[in-house]
Design a protein around this nucleic acid. Structure first.
Lengths: 196, 196
DNA sequence: CTACAATACGGAACACGGTTCCGCTTTGCA
DNA sequence: TGCAAAGCGGAACCGTGTTCCGTATTGTAG
């Protein structure tokens, strides 16, 4: 209790004021650029928007995935917390699953290119992958299990596969009015129903 | 019928022998590289494999999409021709549709990254997009219409959307044993069944 | 208030892949 | 066999991600 930080490790010696300021600035700039140019926007654009050098981005967010995670963390958390809430407030588990998937899809399709980034197997996106999966797969699993236990759906599909499928269906859903990802996802969920 | 070439325009003065040779060599090299490195393999790799300069690729195939089309044309044609054949040889239109989708999925998942390229909205891939859609959407439409006419499926989904959905589900299906695109596509097709 | 060491910064430099350009070679034809 | 046109190879160029380094800012101790 002598090194001044309340944390467990000694590796967080409290950030400098300008570093903190820049981190906030960067998050705002990234959020703004993501809206207009998508999550694959050039690093330089984000740096310019924030009025900082490119290295500053890398210092705060080692990979693009870290930046994306930081920008969307709140919304992912909200989605994760909605799972149990729906399960206890909606009549049937299957309906709750459907509603939850809707939330997930809404989130994905409103962020240019996020769905595509989510499935990228490029090395730099591993943390993004891991974060989404760690956070959401357990939620989805609970919903899936509940619906399966209620006999409403077949039980031979795991949450990981379902979420990847839904994520894939959302790829390219923005900027093309001829493609309605929500409808296809609804079809997929309908296909989940236990065959009578 | 007097200008020596069998074509309609006068803009095809017959290629030189070495050009023809190189085109074949390039197709072979590209096919080989696509198998090992996927359809997004660096242009230089393909050129090196073929033992030609990079400009030669661009001369023969202005965009990567043109090269991909040329490499896979036979298989796309086969898939297109399988549609009517299945429709007349399989018991129900819905079953024929399922079988045809299977063929399509098999084609997509066995070509590294083709499904992803197919949905890319980058400008250079427009011809790839157009080729696939021009060739396969009519086939799919016939199958879909037949199944709808037989009352086996709902009729509020068009072929374009279905094919894009299936294509999307196939993205990243190679190189990950935890993700079985075929199963998800099957679910999607199951969801198509007319609700009783 | 000042000096200094640690921290962070900006932008240049580098790596890499797609695309274009240009001087040279090969081909087809007379 | 000579020659014009077609084709070729690879260097050069451009845009993007990533790293490095000299400089500026910050926090603190005296």
């Amino acid at each position: 209790m002598n090194d001044g930080d309340g944390g467990a490790g000694r590796a967080a010696p409290r950030k400098r004021a300008d570093a903190l300021r820049n981190e906030r600035t960067l998050l705002d700039a990234a959020a703004a650029v993501f809206v207009t140019s998508g999550v694959e926007a050039p690093v330089r654009d984000i740096a310019a928007r924030a009025g900082v050098g490119v290295a500053t981005i890398y210092r705060h967010f080692p990979t693009r995935a870290d930046l994306i995670i930081a920008v969307y963390r709140h919304q992912v958390e909200a989605c994760a917390e909605a799972g149990p809430a729906l399960l206890s407030s909606v009549a049937s588990p299957y309906a709750a699953l459907g509603r939850w998937i809707d939330l997930f899809v809404d989130f994905l399709v409103t962020k240019h290119g996020l769905a595509a980034a989510l499935r990228s197997d490029s090395a730099g996106f591993e943390t993004l992958h891991a974060y989404f999966l760690d956070r959401l797969v357990p939620v989805c699993t609970r919903l899936l299990d509940a619906a399966a236990a209620a006999g409403e759906i077949r039980s031979d599909l795991n949450a990981l596969e379902l979420m990847r499928g839904v994520g894939n269906l959302c790829i390219g859903a923005d900027n093309d009015p001829r493609y309605d990802a929500r409808r296809l996802v609804a079809l997929l969920i309908a296909g989940l129903r236990r065959p009578r």
